[in-house]
Design a protein around this nucleic acid. Structure first.
Lengths: 148, 148
DNA sequence: ACCACATGGTCAGCTCACTTGACCATCGTG
DNA sequence: CACGATGGTCAAGTGAGCTGACCATGTGGT
């Protein structure tokens, strides 16, 4: 694959990501979560996985702990997240989703699935699965930056 | 494909995009362009395609024309871009890359190609081409937002 | 035990990209 | 030639994220 094709592929990935973000954003707004930004969604995903502290979240988002703390404060104010004391470390505060937060997470998953379903409409049958498999092999775990 | 797999695929796309952006950013810094942000790269890509005005750029980046104008001002100050009068419209200013701007564009393409080449190392032979073909079919043209 | 240092977290102030709103010059059409 | 649409800039405000300082708690060394 020459440089031009490689660059083109890179651009396609970026455009696909833009589609995902915009699509999810739209879907969330349609479900009544218009006040949430993509960064919030990434935060939900991490918090939902359990045993998350503000510092964990900051690493996951690729930001400073201050920024993560600020973001969490917003989620707490909206009733999506609660800060609970960590039984094993008096310094730390564990983040947990409220019922509203879990409902929100489900809505985000639905919205994401909708976007992907749209892709399925233009791709022959099993290709979506192949796409999934390829990306899984290619992608390394790491932060999911909410901004470029 | 169920919702969970679809959500997972969406996340993989986002993570892949993050890898691209971070990789290009690193590659650019290594080539002496550490002062440029991803948004600048997207601007370069559009300007390089020729006959671009500030308004065109704003649409391409999904921002306001004021923001695009501001961004262009920065590129002009750094000597990457010049504003030239449009011979067909005295209101408009055509954007053109300087020699430095073109060198920068080539550097960005190289950096992007490097990231993709890294993917080629972990994917069996023709899969990269298949990935390219799939994304091309799935992705619709549109703005390339520099921020989520 | 006690000290020094590392770690989790917050507060305060700043930066800077991006936004809204107003405005000017020019184009196109009746 | 008037009038609305369009390309562009200026000015002020917003807000997410950063740096720097600080406190409380955990951890390892002597």
């Amino acid at each position: 694959m020459d440089d031009r094709a490689a660059t083109d592929l890179a651009m396609l990935v970026l455009r696909a990501a833009t589609e995902v973000v915009d699509g999810v954003q739209e879907g969330m707004a349609a479900r009544g979560y218009g006040d949430l930004r993509p960064a919030h969604g990434f935060a939900f995903a991490r918090i939902a996985s359990g045993d998350t502290t503000v510092v964990d979240l900051a690493e996951h988002l690729g930001t400073t702990k201050q920024a993560a703390s600020q973001l969490v404060t917003g989620l707490v104010e909206r009733g999506y997240v609660v800060r609970e004391p960590d039984p094993r470390d008096a310094r730390a505060r564990l983040l947990r989703l409220t019922a509203a937060g879990e409902a929100c997470t489900r809505a985000a998953e639905e919205a994401a699935a909708e976007v992907v379903a749209g892709w399925g409409d233009v791709l022959p049958g099993a290709s979506l699965g192949a796409l999934h498999a390829m990306l899984r092999r290619v992608v390394t775990p790491g932060p999911l930056r909410p901004a470029w």
